[in-house]
């Protein structure tokens, strides 16, 4: 245990995030949970869902950037994270554009 290789000496990417960052993110997440619950009771028509999703995306981004250290990660890791979201959006958008446009053309037999 004691004799680690000397390479660790010139480590440059060791990021110790100050704990106040964690507490700040934690407080923001709790406040946003309260806000999303409160707003759900207000009738915004079809905008309720957009507000709820926007708040959820902000919360998820805070968790990813700070709790999951993506902000301090390598570019390669950032690309992988972005690709996950990108492929998820491909799946959602293509499926929903199919479902939304099925009625546009007359299909024989329907």
């Amino acid at each position: 245990m004691a004799n680690h290789p000397p390479e660790t000496e010139h480590s440059t990417t060791h990021h110790i995030v100050p704990t106040r960052v964690y507490y700040g993110v934690f407080a923001a997440l709790l406040v946003l949970t309260g806000v999303t619950t409160w707003i759900a009771y207000i009738d915004l028509g079809r905008f309720n869902i957009y507000v709820a999703l926007t708040i959820a995306v902000i919360k998820a981004s805070l968790v990813m950037l700070f709790f999951m250290h993506v902000r301090y990660s390598s570019k390669l890791t950032k690309v992988i994270v972005a690709s996950g979201v990108f492929w998820l959006m491909i799946m959602f958008l293509m499926t929903m554009s199919d479902l939304a446009t099925r009625g546009w053309m007359r299909v024989p037999g329907r």
């Binding site: 949970t33 759900a40 709820a52 959820a56 919360k59 998820a60 968790v63």
Partner: peptide, 10 residues
């Protein structure tokens, strides 16, 4: 945790 962040409002 992130999964739940989306499940709760949805």
């Amino acid at each position: 945790d992130i999964v739940w962040i989306f499940l709760f409002p949805l």
